[in-house]
Amino acid sequence: RKEMTAACTPRRRIINLTSVLSLQEEINEQGHEVLREMLHNHSFVGCVNPQWALAQHQTKLYLLNTTKLSEELFYQILIYDFANFGVLRLSEPAPLFDLAMLALDSPESGWTEEDGPKEGLAEYIVEFLKKKAEMLADYFSLEIDEEGNLIGLPLLIDNYVPPLEGLPIFILRLATEVNWDEEKECFESLSKECAMFYSIRKQYISEESTLSGQQSEVPGSIPNSWKWTVEHIVYKALRSHILPPKHFTEDGNILQLANLPDLYKVFERC
């Protein structure tokens, strides 16, 4: 597991931080080997919608929660590849102030007048994250320049770009939802926020969305749709870069829909 690298990086740093090793061990302890084997050997059937997909393993048909699986995938990559990410360069710098204002204007932020003026909160978020810029760049390849612009994001899987519609809320939550006081809790909560931002979430995906850094293989055609990215990038990574937690067998994120021999018997009677 320590050699797990989802995106190509030129050289690998050895990380011996106790906090990170502890988080890696927790993933191992909570892992479910049968689910790992199923995901490793599954045959992708198709997307139901951005949140759900169908896959077959041996004779069984499964309904998989793409949102939760991708979130767990990105969390584990962030923990196992800690401080070893490439950088996704933004085509132009994104001012943190503008991103924070967009987030505060969104109902998702939960902002009320009692929280104070949005401009003041946005300025605080910019200054707060600028103070964390060195650590964010060093460990997470999340790059913020001296003017308070976001200029780079971590490359977690080759050819995958997170849904940038979720970027404003991500920046807001970096400042408000991460435990910045304790090292282990900081790395864990920061990785979880980043994983949620990178995950496939239906509120940020339309039929026209593209999450891939590449064009489709047909010359002159439109960019790959999110469905292509889910199948050929995300579920491909799920084959080798995730140890599913045991609770996925109990919380409805992986559901067995049918045993195909039983279905064949039904059709034979028709």
Rank of each mutant, 00 (worst) to 15 (best):
K184N: 06
L121G: 01
I151M: 08
A7P: 13
N253Q: 05
E108F: 04
C186S: 02
K246M: 13
Q30N: 09
A103C: 14
I144Q: 01
C47M: 06
H232V: 14
E37G: 10
A83R: 03
E25M: 09
I233Y: 14
N16I: 14
I205C: 04
E183D: 03
L129D: 00
V48S: 11
Q215C: 05
S199L: 01
L150M: 12
Y264W: 03
Q215H: 08
E268I: 13
I77E: 15
H32F: 13
L155S: 07
S191E: 02
Q30M: 10
I125S: 03
K192C: 08
V266K: 15
V218C: 10
D138N: 02
N253H: 07
I125Q: 01
H40R: 09
G31S: 11
I27P: 15
L61H: 00
E146S: 03
E188I: 12
H232C: 12
E134S: 03
A175P: 02
L23I: 11
S212K: 09
F197P: 00
P219D: 08
E72A: 10
N16R: 12
Y264L: 06
G110F: 05
R269E: 07
I144L: 07
V178K: 00
I222P: 10
F170M: 06
P163I: 09
N84L: 14
E113G: 07
T67N: 10
N65F: 00
C8T: 08
G86D: 14
S206A: 04
S22E: 13
R11P: 14
L35I: 09
K2E: 13
E231V: 12
F85Y: 11
F187S: 02
N49Q: 11
Q203F: 13
E26I: 07
R173S: 15
E71M: 06
C194W: 12
S43D: 12
Q256F: 11
L129M: 14
E123R: 02
V20I: 04
I200P: 12
L35F: 11
V178W: 01
R12E: 10
D158M: 06
D138G: 02
I200R: 03
N159A: 06
E25R: 11
T59V: 11
P244H: 07
I15E: 09
L90G: 00
Y139C: 04
T9P: 10
E114R: 04
V20M: 08
V34R: 12
W226V: 08
T66W: 00
E108M: 04
F170Q: 00
L61E: 01
I254M: 08
R1H: 11
E165C: 07
P117L: 15
L153H: 00
E143C: 09
S91T: 10
L39Q: 11
V87A: 07
L255H: 07
L172Y: 02
I222L: 10
H241M: 11
G213I: 07
V230N: 06
Q58A: 06
H42R: 12
S189Y: 05
P107Y: 14
L190P: 00
W111K: 02
N41D: 04
D251S: 04
S199D: 00
Y204M: 09
E92W: 14
I171R: 00
G120M: 15
F187R: 11
A100P: 00
D251Y: 12
T59N: 10
R201E: 14
R12C: 10
A94D: 01
L172W: 03
C8A: 10
S225K: 05
S225C: 09
T66P: 00
E113S: 11
I77M: 08
Q203Y: 12
W52L: 08
P10D: 11
E147T: 06
L102R: 02
S221K: 11
I157G: 01
K246A: 10
R12G: 10
N149W: 14
G148F: 06
K2Q: 12
Q215E: 11
G120Y: 13
I125G: 03
G31W: 15
E33K: 12
N28L: 13
A103Q: 01
L238H: 02
M38G: 02
P168S: 13
L142Y: 04
G46Q: 02
E250L: 14
M135K: 02
L17A: 08
G31K: 10
E127D: 07
K192S: 06
E250T: 08
Y62P: 00
Q76D: 13
E114I: 14
S199G: 12
I254L: 07
L99K: 00
P244N: 15
I15N: 13
L21G: 04
S225Y: 06
K131C: 13
A53C: 09
F128I: 02
P261K: 11
M4I: 12
H241W: 12
V45W: 01
E72D: 13
V48R: 13
K68V: 08
G120K: 02
V218P: 09
Y139N: 03
I79W: 15
N224G: 08
C194A: 07
N179W: 10
G31E: 13
S240W: 09
V178P: 07
K184Y: 12
V218T: 05
N84W: 14
D105I: 04
L164G: 03
E268A: 09
S212E: 09
N65Y: 01
L156K: 00
P117S: 15
I77P: 00
G31Y: 13
I171F: 14
L64F: 10
G152T: 03
V87M: 04
D158V: 06
Q215M: 09
H32N: 11
R173I: 00
D115N: 02
L238M: 07
T176K: 01
C186V: 02
G86Y: 14
A94P: 05
N259F: 11
E37S: 09
S141M: 12
H241Y: 11
L63G: 11
P10Q: 06
Q214A: 07
V230K: 05
I14S: 05
R269M: 15
L39W: 15
L102G: 05
